[in-house]
Design a protein around this nucleic acid. Structure first.
Lengths: 202, 202, 202, 202
DNA sequence: GATGAATGAGAATTCATTCAT
DNA sequence: AATGAATGAATTCTCATTCAT
């Protein structure tokens, strides 16, 4: 066959990645075999290796794209509305997004990613730096909020950044991995609690 | 050979479980091989299979014992001090306990446990019911706190139970699995935030 | 597309053969992949299969051309000079030729060829008959030398043919494959030894 | 099963090595699959890996033992008889030994060994040093012969060492690999030629 | 009961060859 | 004719489990 266009190549890669993403989300990295991906994608063994040089590479490329998309959510802050409004909406949206099966899978993949990566020193470093970026993005927004007077000036931003990201993850983790139902009320209570802290209403 | 006393059997089992626990914590379920456990424990392959019928069974028995111990922590509420004091201390203790390597391992094991269990419908049910017990214990305490006037009477207890357990897990997960340092300040901010909510100070 | 001229076809074949020759010399038959040849030659996978129907065929065609060239060396005996002179020069030239990287490669290829061929009854027969031709060429020359009085009349020509070809190969093999340096002195001692025998000076 | 005695382990290893030796001799390193060894030896896939950690290790252990045995041949020089007698006998014995199928296989393995090893820088070094030992053993004997007056005092020992080993190899190679029959006469002519040189009879 | 050697089903990956374009 | 993506059988190696001693 003649050379595929870049577009065709990317589409093929995307297809494989999409299928692999589903399997990884469901079974985790170690328990997913290349055969699983072969079956799910309909692409032959060798075919997959035309696009990725190892199972790990597939996993990492998925992480690359998925984790990026979460971060980008934050990039778009409406300039006019208050930061406190934005954050409340953002937190709520993140939690409620899990109602969508697709986002649930992303969450599962994400936890699997951290579990896998945490056992590999080299990868871990990359993952940490990704987290740091996410963290500093958040801090930047919090700072902006403080400056605008939307958030409390008493905040210990660095540490609150940790608390926010960690507890948000926890809310998702419990629902996505542990399979414990998260109700809308739980989400609301959580966001209220967080925003009270951030707005200094306690 | 003469039948071993129950005590001897239990001691040998405990030894294997202890060693397996360490390896599972470090490498996760799939990446731990029986050989890892053989080497760590000094017990032969066949020996291990005398006590456990599969790798999965070892894993599950560890979960059984470890997760039980966490629960029991809550059983002992000092009658005199306020519930809000108790909870504050308890949450703080749980988070700070991660400074101890052993507790860190337990946390890691626990997350690995949920990840594994989440992929197996049958196990999942058992795990869920364990979680439910933990959740209802917590609710019971919260109720007691409300009744005693130590906690806000406005609380939506069921949902707050979820929020508490989930966010606490998140705080631990971020530190234990993702390897992001949790400072004492982060822990304190988190507990403050939670207690403000529970005590109705916002 | 218009049919390529025979010349164009041959030139393309030659190019592929030349490149394949280099890779085979370096890595041997089994460890050379078609991709290696594709990369070295710049000709596409399918392109190569237009000219050769298998990896083995390429290998064999190289052998065909290379081994022929060695034989032809012998075809040109200067009529005037003594056969003993000619042989001395020829043996010396063969050995010293290994200083040239190109000839070293040819030697390596040649040994690889025999190793490969020795494992395949059908090919082996062809190779043997090639060897026989070479052997009888040599005998012919030796006979001529005897007749002219340049070589000893006591020679057991058939067997000496074997000894000459075998030891010459050995000298080359040790240098080319085993990587043991062959000095000019070694070469000279060898040729002296051989010529003493052939000239009956012992 | 309880622990095997060292003897039992060695016997098992020997069995595997023996079978692998046969297959490697016949098909070469690359073309021998672990399955070939499994079938030939009757030992299961996993079983073989209990004794050797890779295909390469099996190959190298065979080389270790086989190549050693050849060397040791030289260690036993009868003190009384002349060195020239010993060498003549030794060279003749080496060549005629190829009549035995077993020694033929060893020769084939040996050439395969060098071919394989020559493409791997790390292994190559080890192989070279093995060769060096063999070479220096030979030189030592030659020196002894010169000293005793059994061999010519005009010899350039280092280079003759090369010539001897290389031509001897060549004689064997031509027979074992190229499949060209080596007659007793060829062997005798070769040894005569070599001894004439060594004894200075030319 | 304990041991550890043996098993063999699977895992990831490679590669000669094919064939649609 | 030329291209290079696709195929899938074959390869090396791993590992949970079994079982003879």
């Amino acid at each position: 066959m003649p050379k595929l266009t870049d577009e065709a190549i990317n589409s093929r890669k995307s297809h494989i990645i999409e299928c692999a993403f589903q399997v990884f989300s469901e079974k985790g990295f170690s328990d997913t075999s290349m055969d699983d991906i072969v079956i799910k994608s309909g692409v032959s063994k060798g075919g997959i290796y035309n696009y990725f040089k190892s199972k790990e590479e597939i996993f990492l490329e998925i992480a690359e794209s998925r984790l990026e998309s979460r971060r980008s959510l934050m990039d778009s802050i409406p300039v006019n509305s208050g930061i406190h409004i934005f954050l409340r909406n953002y937190f709520t949206a993140v939690l409620l997004s899990l109602k969508d099966e697709r986002n649930l899978m992303t969450a599962r993949f994400s936890f699997e990613f951290w579990a896998t990566v945490s056992r590999n020193a080299e990868l871990n470093e990359k993952a940490q730096s990704r987290y740091s970026k996410f963290h500093s993005d958040l801090i930047r927004i919090l700072k902006l909020g403080v400056k605008r007077g939307d958030l409390s000036s008493q905040l210990d931003l660095d540490n609150m950044g940790y608390v926010i990201l960690a507890t948000l993850d926890g809310m998702m983790h419990t629902h996505a991995i542990m399979g414990v139902e998260m109700t809308d009320e739980s989400a609301r209570h959580y966001v209220d609690m967080l925003m009270s802290k951030l707005e200094g209403r306690n």
